[in-house]
Simulated scan of single mutants.
Amino acid sequence: MKNPRTRVQGRRSTDSALAEIREDERVHISRELHDDLGQLLATLRVELTLLKQLPPDSPDAEAHLANMDSLLVTAIGSLRRIAGNLRPRALDEGGLYFALESLRREFEKRHGIRCQLDALRDALVLDESYSTAIYRLVQESLTNIARHAGASTAKVHLQRDAGELFIDISDDGRGIGVGDMAKADALGLLGMRERVAALRGSMNVDGGSGTRISITIPLPSGT
C-alpha cells in the first residue's frame, strides 16, 4: 500500500504533466485564433471599408454585403469549434458519459461509421481534469478511426474497477501495420501516449484484425 506522501507526490506529478498538456493546447488554440478567426475578421473589416465607399443602392454594395454575411457565418463556426476545443460544452452540461454519448452520435452522423458506447454513467463521474483528458483520448481515437481505419464499426468500452479506469477502443478496419506503428505520431498516437503518461497510465495498441487501443488509468483516491 502506498504511503500518503507517495500518493501526494504522484498526484502532483500528474497535475504538472496535465498542466503542460493544457499549455500546449492553449498555444495551439492561440494560433488558431490568429490564423483562422483573426484572418476572417481582418477580411471582414476590408469588406466593410470598401462598402462604406459605395452608394447604398450600388450593385457592388449588395455583393459586399453578401460576402460579409458569408464571412460572419464562417467566423461563427470557427469560434464555436475553437471554444469546443478549449473544453467540450457537453462535459459541463451532463458530465463525461453525456459528452461521450454526444461524441458517439456526432461520429456516426459525420462519418457513417456505426459506433457503440459501452459504459456505466455512474462509473464516469470524475473530476474536471480527468474527465477532459479521457474525453480527449476517446475523441482522438475516433478521429484516427475515421481518418485511417477504413472501418464500418467501432466500439468504445469504459470500465471502472479497483481504483482504475479501463478504456478499450476498437474497430473492424484494416488495422495498424508495423510501418504505421513506426510513425505513430502521424496517426495521432503520440499525443495519446503523452496524455496517458500524464495520467500515469499505460496504453497498448494491437493492430491485428482491426485496431484495438487499450488504456489503463489509475484514478486518484476519493474520485
Rank of each mutant, 00 (worst) to 15 (best):
Q39A: 15
R87A: 11
V196C: 04
G112C: 07
L103W: 09
E23L: 10
D180E: 15
E128Q: 14
S221R: 14
L33M: 14
F166E: 07
Q9C: 07
L117P: 05
R5D: 13
R7Y: 02
E101S: 12
Y130I: 09
I21A: 05
R121W: 08
T223A: 14
R114V: 06
I113D: 04
T132M: 06
E62D: 09
N85L: 15
A61D: 02
G112Y: 06
S70E: 05
L18K: 02
D161G: 05
S78M: 07
L165A: 08
I76H: 10
D206P: 00
V196D: 02
A99R: 10
L189H: 07
R80W: 00
Y135N: 03
T6F: 10
Q39N: 15
D60Y: 08
L137F: 04
A75Q: 01
R26K: 12
R89M: 10
I217P: 01
H111N: 12
L137M: 06
S70T: 08
S16H: 09
L48F: 10
Q9I: 12
R212V: 11
P55L: 04
L124C: 09
T43G: 14
Q9L: 15
E101K: 13
H28F: 10
A133G: 07
R81C: 01
I176T: 12
A162N: 12
M192C: 13
L165E: 01
L72W: 02
R147M: 05
R193I: 06
L37Q: 09
